[in-house]
Simulated scan of single mutants.
Amino acid sequence: MNTPVRLGYAINQWKPNFDDFTRPEQHERALKIISACGFTGVELRAGTGRWDPLGRPASIAATYGSTGAFIDLVRHTGLEAVSSWYVDPGEPVDEELSRGRSILDRGEHGAITESLLPFAEFLAEAGGSRLVARALPAAWSLDGPPSATRIADAAAGWNTVGAAVAQTGIRLSLHVDCLSAAADDKTLAALLADTDPELVGLTLDTAELTIAQLDPVEVFDAHHQRVDHLHLKDTRHVDETGERLAPHAEAGMLSEGGARGVERWFYECGTPGGLVDFPALAERLRTRAWSGWAVFESEQTPNPARSAMLNGWYAQRLLPR
């Protein structure tokens, strides 16, 4: 059965080599590899500063002379679009003199909206469709699980952002990573219930949910009407001891491997020993006639090009065009 799923690839796994990835020739090389592996779109990740020239529309314009010149490069390499852009409003932004903003603070909703609009405008020009945003801050950074009031505050903020970016023709989609306070069945359900389904979708990230002890297939079953974007990667590990809730888990758990010394939390789809049931998810997509971008990732890889090839091979067999 043919599927309307479009295959995209996240360029974020090239970013750890940031000292090399400041050069346009490295950008072109990565885009060509993504295209050669059978993907038709690329997802960018928000960043800041001179070492992240693809992190913001203004940085792209400064590097390439205009955003249009970069979009031309994307299409020249054989890709159809910049499919999506991932942003976390809680991350610092040097260009805006911001130490990061919290969606839980109603007083910051206006600034968050203003900061994210340029990404949506760029995506509209680049043939994209999804502005992917971190749903809630890290669980460890909060004083316990978010209350109904705080969830409602976050939902109000995302509704505001969703309405603004919708004016550009782009849809907001919330992403749940393994450290996020939204990586909890009840919290996620409450957040989605408080957001407007016409304005706010859900990005399903297979490995992030699995690490947080959530079954991505079950999450899809529960919220399939809201799932409008996919992040596909595998994992061999589950955080069964709650290390993701420990202070500064970004460093202690994800970067340093935690108490078990995990070398890599994320792997290519279909990796031996992988815990994600991709065939079951693919069957759900076919049954629901799901359409949208399936963006493959492989963060923490020691070899981005090899990972792109492995993911490309798996993608073409999992999700036949």
Rank of each mutant, 00 (worst) to 15 (best):
N12K: 05
F18Y: 03
E25M: 13
E25N: 12
I33F: 01
L44S: 10
R50D: 10
A58M: 11
T63H: 13
Y64L: 10
G65W: 14
T67I: 07
G68Q: 08
F70P: 00
V74W: 14
G78H: 08
P92A: 09
D94M: 14
E95Q: 15
E96L: 15
G107N: 02
G110A: 14
A120H: 01
F122G: 12
G128M: 10
S129Y: 04
V132K: 00
G144V: 12
G144S: 04
P146Q: 07
D153R: 08
D153P: 00
V161P: 00
T168K: 02
V176T: 09
C178T: 15
L179H: 11
D185Y: 12
T187S: 00
L188V: 01
A190L: 03
A193W: 07
E198M: 09
T206Q: 10
T210I: 01
Q213D: 11
F220V: 03
R226S: 02
H237S: 15
T241E: 05
T241Y: 09
T241Q: 05
E243S: 06
P247F: 15
A249K: 10
T271S: 10
G274R: 02
V276L: 09
L281D: 03
R288I: 06
G292K: 04
V295F: 01
A308L: 05
M309Q: 13
A315I: 01
L319N: 05
